[in-house]
Write a protein that binds this DNA or RNA. Structure first.
Lengths: 191, 191
DNA sequence: AAAAAACGCAACAGTGAAGTTCCATTTAAT
DNA sequence: ATTAAATGGAACTTCACTGTTGCGTTTTTT
């Protein structure tokens, strides 16, 4: 029952925490109802060790959500959303996000508890996204009529869909290019 | 243990079956791990009655998936996908599908068991969808370069996204119009 | 009105997972 | 090398859910 970081963990304990979170992602992605035992085994640990690091199942899920959300925010910031030209930023962010989302599909699909750290991080990501879109609209890349909130939701949906069917190693830049092209122009014949 | 329809069910029994499926959709949409007890209560029935109509939990899920998939296929066929002009068909199908999907979000999100009736129905829906898109491409509505499989996936994703945040009574035709517009033209400024 | 079917309710057994405790052993920190 | 922390493993309790059975009562069918 010590979820709060009282003193720094020992090196092996920190490895265990990471192993648990990575195992949880793998196992829960395959079966959201998987047991703590399955997670522990996948992490190469005993079940009691998992319970020593996380008070209960929910604590694992919370930590998993926060960990993944942090990496997502980093992926976005690495695309320079505030300084790069909008089209470049959107491309880079998309490619970065696709990689993170592929590795943390389950964790990033978890509904963030309102008020939680994970929710705060997701809101941060969303703010970056909206800022880029607003700049893109001012630069004439996006239509002046575009509903940016709807645009953001569509963009999220395209990212989610782009994760399917790609056997891991498919070039993220290629997928991102197709995604952005669809986002901008849709499927209608050129006018 | 009588999942197979031996003799026609009595009137009240058939009402029970429908009540169970509708309750299962509501309850499981809110919590996918909900118990049979919760489903029974939501259906206004005793738990044993649920077990009398469905051998086990999986049988409920299967029946739920099939029921929803049937309605989905009906919604698609009501849009005349083979005869109406492609743009009209796409609009109508979209509006119809949105309504069905809104009422059966959970059931239609279930991964269809390979080889099951539900899987067959979903494949049928997909075939209708591809047929419309091919006609649309021949008619010059969709770009000759468009990857129709990717287009279909994007279309599905847009449908899924359009279900969120709409407080039920939002006009399906309005939402469908926005969806189709985005699908065709994206968000870029007009060239 | 009589027969058949469906229902509610209570009770029961079986299962599996969550969470805890204790202790011997291993591993990291100083 | 000593100390403190972390781990594995077994055992145990608790608990919720599943699936089943039996029986008296209600509802539908004919």
């Amino acid at each position: 029952m010590e979820p709060t970081t009282k003193r720094p963990l020992r090196a092996d304990a920190e490895r265990s925490v990471r192993a648990i979170l990575e195992a949880a992602e793998r196992v829960l992605a395959a079966d959201p109802g998987a047991s703590m035992e399955q997670i522990a085994t996948a992490a190469g640990l005993a079940r009691t060790t998992v319970h020593r690091r996380f008070a209960n199942r929910q604590a694992v899920l919370d930590a998993l959500a926060v960990s993944a959300a942090r990496q997502l925010l980093d992926a976005v910031d690495d695309g320079r959303p505030d300084t790069a030209p909008p089209l470049v930023a959107i491309h880079r962010i998309t490619a970065n996000v696709l990689q993170v989302k592929y590795s943390w599909t389950y964790a990033l699909g978890l509904p963030p508890e309102p008020g939680s750290e994970a929710a705060r991080l997701h809101a941060e990501v969303q703010a970056r996204c909206m800022a880029v879109f607003q700049r893109a609209q001012r630069d004439g890349l996006l239509s002046p009529d575009a509903d940016l909130d709807w645009a953001r939701r569509v963009y999220y949906a395209l990212v989610g869909e782009s994760l399917h069917g790609n056997d891991a190693n498919a070039d993220p830049d290629t997928i991102a290019a197709r995604l952005v092209d669809t986002f901008l122009h849709g499927f209608a014949a050129a006018r």
